[in-house]
Design a protein around this nucleic acid. Sequence first.
RNA 1: GCGAGAGUGGUGGAAUGGUAGACACGCUAGAUUUAGGAUCUAGUGCCUUCGGGCGUGCGGGUUCAAAUCCCGCCUCUCGCACCA
Length: 813
Amino acid sequence: MSETKQKKTYDPTDLERRWQARWAESGLYKTDEDENKPKHYALTMLPYPSGDLHVGHWYPMTPSDTRARFMRMNGYRVFFPIGFDAFGLPAENAAIQRGIHPREWTYSNIERMRGQLRQMGAMFDFDSEVVTCDPEYYRWNQWFFLKFFEKGLAYREEAPVDWCPKDNTTLAREQVIGPDRRCERCGTPVIKKNLAQWLFKITDYAEELLDFSKIDWPERVQTLQRNWIGRSEGTRIRFEIEGYSPLEVFTTRPDTLFGATFFVMSPEHPAVEEITTPDQAEGVRTYVERAGRMSEIDRTDVTREKTGVYTGAYAINPANGEKIPIYIADYVLMGYGTGAIMAVPGHDDRDFEFAKRHGVEIRTVIAPPDWDGEELEVPYAGEGTMVNSGPFDGTPSEEGREKVTAWLEVRSAGSAAVTYRLRDWLISRQRYWGTPIPIIYCDSCGTVPVPQEDLPVLLPEDAKFTPTGESPLKLDEGFRKVACPKCGSPAERETDTMDGFVDNSWYWYRYLSPHYDEGPFDTERGRKWLPVDLYTGGIEHATGHLLYARFWTKVMRDLGLVDFDEPMIRLRNQGTILGPDGQKMSKSRGNVVNPQEYVDRFGSDALRDFLMFIGPWNEGGPWDGKGIEGVSRWLRRAVSLATGSDSSGGEADPSELTRRTNRLVKKITDDLEALRFNTSIAALMEHTNYLLAVRGRVDDEEWQEALRTFVTVLSPFAPHHAEEMWAAMGEEYSVHEQAWPGYEEALTQAEEITLIVQVNGKLRDRIDAPADISEETARELALSSARVRPHLEGKELRKSVYVPGRLVNLVVG
RNA sequence: GCGAGAGUGGUGGAAUGGUAGACACGCUAGAUUUAGGAUCUAGUGCCUUCGGGCGUGCGGGUUCAAAUCCCGCCUCUCGCACCA
């Protein structure tokens, strides 16, 4: 009985269900194509169809929806699509565990999540949905691959690559994380494997990717990308090798060249064997083998001692003609610079440590500012004056870098050079559930791209997808064996599939025309909507997805598909919503919060507003299930503004209504521009409390007007509740088609203020005063205050500071 | 080691030079109710001799005025990490 009584007064789930039905029926959220309006492409990162929508989806998506609704009400035509990033390992792993096909698992999850997305009540344009594992989609991954191949941006190379022994596949460098180099997905330490793999030449765009001048992205993301690309300016220097051809090194400190007292090569350097003298051959071979066997974790341990062996060979320092010994040591990495260095122990920590261990000469060539001419006890890596450097003695080190480089250039022994840390993007995966790479290997014709008209290369339905370390497609003869498209003789398909990051490097283009079959997207519609105006998603994608996305768009530009340089003009990162224990939500920890139970109890609006209210959106934070009750109470009270008539009493001043309404609109407008959702909700709550307190004490027409404004600005936050209120007020459907209300700055100002009176900066009194009170009057008022006077007694007034409309500070002493 | 960010009541947080703690959660008291893990009202930073004093990680500084700006330190979080 009490149940029914409850339901009668306030039942958010019923309320929301009714409006969702009405919205669907009336096509309220069909994308507005009216080109007379300015466009706004709002994009939220598409989910992986893992099974159920969780709070981790609600947290980024619902505030993005609020923002999209705000833009719509501000007169923009808004495109706010959603889709599924549907290729990937979890589908395969689940399929293996349960004996069902990855496709079946994926599509049934998508089906379920679609329903949950609708329940969210967001203004998603479901007609534009994209599912990346549809042949209709991945066909264009293959099309792009062929374009990349044509342009020399896709190439195959045999090299040691990162391999996850648990997931049985190679990984891109971006997917290997931490100092101990673990697989991003499963945490297993990766190992190196020598494999022929396909790579995309993202390094061709390294320089351009460092330019963020055309986009408004968080400084943090820019820094992460900049560090990841790792640009270093320096000099390539050629060292003659006795009895062998010259070798190059890269250095950022050519000014220390005269202090290079030895030379070090990486154990993997291709010239190691040839330069090694016969008497050192055994030691070198042993060392190289040991380095090769060492795990990545040990190899990259920074705290390890600097080991290495002498090769018996000598290099000639081009600066002074000195013979310097060549060592190999594993602290020199083959993957950076040239894989060989000039070692300057006087001015580099690592070289110093090595020299100490191996008894090599340490020479000071850069004098620190306060140098006393004594040998340095620790390496000095800072700036100073060049010494022991022949003709360069006395040159400041910074200037010396240029001078030495110029000097080397004249002698053809070196030149200025730029090196990047960024590596090419390894896209081959030895797994089933991904886009097949459209390449055929023919004994006579070599590597042959699949002709465009033969796309898509379909994933075979019946492949055995159990991971073995080999590509599952390799075991599928029907797939693998094929006639060469060039000569017709028997040939074999490439059996690797593409990295899932390929799928999501261009999906927002596909949203524009998800069924278009003459290209990856309809460029005509592209002109109407591109680029993305606001992209929202997690910071964790800074050096993966978000870098690939920029790269991909730049390639598309060079292919003539788009005429801009950056995919998304503005990017904002939300924080991470954590479990109640403050830990990252994960199934294994058992702290995953299921939104469904909260939606069932409190409704979608309460959940979304609670998530916005919890704190600044870009900070995230732990989930607190109790907090949502406060938000739910607020929404119920808000609805009662339109349905009830009682006043809550209190001392609120009804004459403040206009001012407070104007202030509310200003506050929400400013907050939504800047994506500050938490303070918006607080302002809406405060306003609700005020309205409830003054209800019945305001002129009816004025009240209705104020209520309409309130409901309108509430609508992006609580779309269902606002609609309910709108209807209860007798207004015409729908509140979501109302224009965003304006406000008058002048009307946000109060006529009466609380004048703060300070003595020596300490608060002593609050006095009600007119807002336009003059300085003199304010001072007089302050001086005559009974609370203030005791603090002035026996003291001299030295100064008074007046902040108009705010405070008077009396300085006494 | 390098880089970035953050430290405010019992809790989440608000305030970006001008009333510290908005808005909530929780708690306390009262009302209503057969009952309540419902609803409503009031209170709620700490100390207090009820005058006031203290208070935004710690120590200094600038200023009439500092959570906010500057210098030094501590703690935590994240990212990168032998990158020559």
